[in-house]
């Protein structure tokens, strides 16, 4: 019987979907399979899409996928929506806007919930991207949650990051100042038929000038109307330009290295957190230390140091 990894390699969509599930749910069999598939990864070009809710990210991704399919590329999409902090449940609705690709075997769309992770991605995003990469997808798009100011994790994962803005954003300009500027390899000014588009472009341009081109790449501003598809060909070209620039300047390797380091750190954090959870329930010594903090008998810092010492012994 073929292993899960072999079935993914053989192009079985159901196996790939199951592997993504195991990884999202933190099941160790999933990591075993991914270890086996890891040599098959590293070929895909990864594009991140971030921007405020309602800026049209999903529709834009849908249109980009169409252009890439027309150009003969296979595409994976990872769409992330927030988990409710109250119930732990989530409604994942990005597929509604990506339905034209449902019958197309060259496209694989997966929805993920944040499950309490901050930074705009789920803990499992990089793992799911790796599966799509191993499946042989040429392009993988990651659509972040889009809450605004903390979408920084995309930088550590994508090769090219798009920041989607719309005219009349007001507060969004604050978000740009607060750090979105550093994320963007390309600015997308979507809903470009709306009032205030010239002003919005001027504001973004002023901000780019202010930021300077530290890296030798000046982020272009591409106007689109995702609902009609206008400007999306230009956007696809801008993505290609950026990927080519990364290749030609040797920066592609830098980004790949950076992504790998992020991946290791994420895996470490997950493992540490799980080990800690297990230790708290299973090791009475650690539970006792935490009780001492709970009762106010000891300060949280001393307890944290003591727990850490316990963990490195165990």
């Amino acid at each position: 019987m073929a292993t899960l990894a072999q079935r993914v390699r053989g192009g079985e969509r159901r196996a790939a979907a199951r592997l993504m599930r195991l990884l999202d749910d933190g099941v160790s069999a999933g990591f075993d399979a991914l270890r086996e598939l890891y040599p098959d990864t590293g070929r895909a070009r990864i594009v991140g899409v971030t921007g405020s809710p309602g800026s049209g990210k999903s529709t834009l991704v849908d249109q980009l996928v169409r252009v890439w399919r027309d150009r003969g590329l296979t595409v994976g999409v990872v769409a992330i929506d927030p988990t409710s902090p109250f119930s732990g449940g989530a409604i994942l609705g990005d597929r509604i806007r990506m339905r034209q690709h449902e019958a197309d075997d060259g496209v694989f769309v997966r929805s993920l919930a944040t499950r309490g992770n901050l930074g705009g991605l789920s803990r499992s995003t990089r793992d799911v991207v790796a599966v799509m990469d191993a499946m042989g997808m040429d392009r993988i798009v990651i659509e972040t949650v889009g809450v605004g100011q903390d979408e920084v994790d995309i930088v550590g994962t994508a090769h090219t990051s798009l920041v989607v803005l719309v005219p009349g954003m007001g507060d969004d300009i604050q978000a740009i100042k607060a750090g979105i500027l550093e994320i963007a390899d390309i600015f997308v000014l979507n809903k470009a038929d709306h009032e205030g588009v010239d002003r919005a472009e001027r504001e973004i341009r002023a901000m780019i000038e202010l930021g300077g081109d530290l890296d030798g790449w000046k982020p272009p501003i591409v106007r689109t109307i995702a609902s009609s598809g206008e400007g999306v060909l230009n956007l696809a070209d801008a993505v290609d330009d950026h990927l080519r620039w990364l290749d030609e300047t040797g920066r592609f390797e830098d980004r790949v290295r950076r992504a790998r380091v992020h991946h290791v750190r994420q895996a470490l954090r997950d493992r540490f957190e799980r080990r800690l959870d297990r230790a708290i329930t299973e090791q009475t010594g650690i539970a006792g230390l935490i009780d001492a903090a709970a009762s106010g008998e000891q300060d949280p810092y001393s307890v944290a140091d003591a727990v850490l010492a316990e963990l490195s012994v165990g």
């Binding site: 988990t83 409710s84 109250f86 119930s87 732990g88 449940g89 989530a90 409604i91 994942l92 609705g93 597929r95 509604i96 339905r99 929805s111 919930a113």
Partner: peptide
Amino acid sequence: ARALRDAGFEIIYTG
């Protein structure tokens, strides 16, 4: 869909 989310499930809503 909303009730199932509030019960802690992940709902893929396809419309």
